[in-house]
């Protein structure tokens, strides 16, 4: 079982290396263990996360791709759909059976034909368009909804910190 997952992960890694989508770098942390990946995600252009480089780790189950991986940002990040410890709360990382956040039924869920690339692209669009309806970080969701300017200032401060730049 794990053998099949390993084969799939190696193929996905190769695919991501040969045809990397814009704004994404991802691969195993070390090639001894393909079940733990590191990803670097660029903040989407034209949003308050623009220019940021956000590191995250992905942990794959042994029955991947039947079950989805778990994803967690390893930097500070303030976003309605990301828990304060960095765990990402997005529908594509959940199967329909688990619905702790009460996603809309139309939201894209995990299925075995999804891929790491699809997950990371979904995370980029989540950065661009937070979903305040299913919030993992209540403070961030509230600020995003009630005081957008302040939310964006805070996001830009984060962007600078991911680049090791001093605050403005």
């Amino acid at each position: 079982m794990a053998g099949r997952a390993l084969k799939r992960l190696m193929a996905e890694y190769k695919q991501l290396t040969l045809n990397p989508p814009e704004g994404i770098i991802a691969g195993p942390t070390n090639e001894e263990n393909f079940f733990e990946w590191e990803a670097l995600i660029m903040g989407p252009e034209g949003t308050c996360f623009e220019c940021g480089v956000f590191p995250a780790k992905l942990v794959f189950p042994t029955d991947y791709p039947l079950s989805p991986p778990k994803m967690q940002f390893t930097c500070d990040i303030f976003h309605p759909n990301i828990y304060s410890d960095g765990r990402v709360c997005i529908s594509i990382l959940h199967s329909p059976g688990e619905d702790p956040m009460g996603y809309e039924s139309s939201a894209e869920r995990w299925s075995p034909v999804q891929s790491v690339e699809k997950i990371l692209l979904s995370v980029i669009s989540m950065l661009a368009e937070p979903n305040a309806e299913s919030s993992a970080n209540v403070d961030a969701a509230k600020l995003w909804r009630d005081n957008r300017a302040q939310f964006e200032r805070q996001a830009r401060r984060l962007v600078r910190s991911t680049l090791n730049l001093p605050p403005l």
């Binding site: 029955d63 079950s67 059976g97 869920r109 995990w110 299925s111």
Partner: peptide, 16 residues
Amino acid sequence: VEFCKQVLLQDEFVHS
């Protein structure tokens, strides 16, 4: 198409 996405391809792989 929605049925296929929501039920057929996803439902049961939660626990396989």
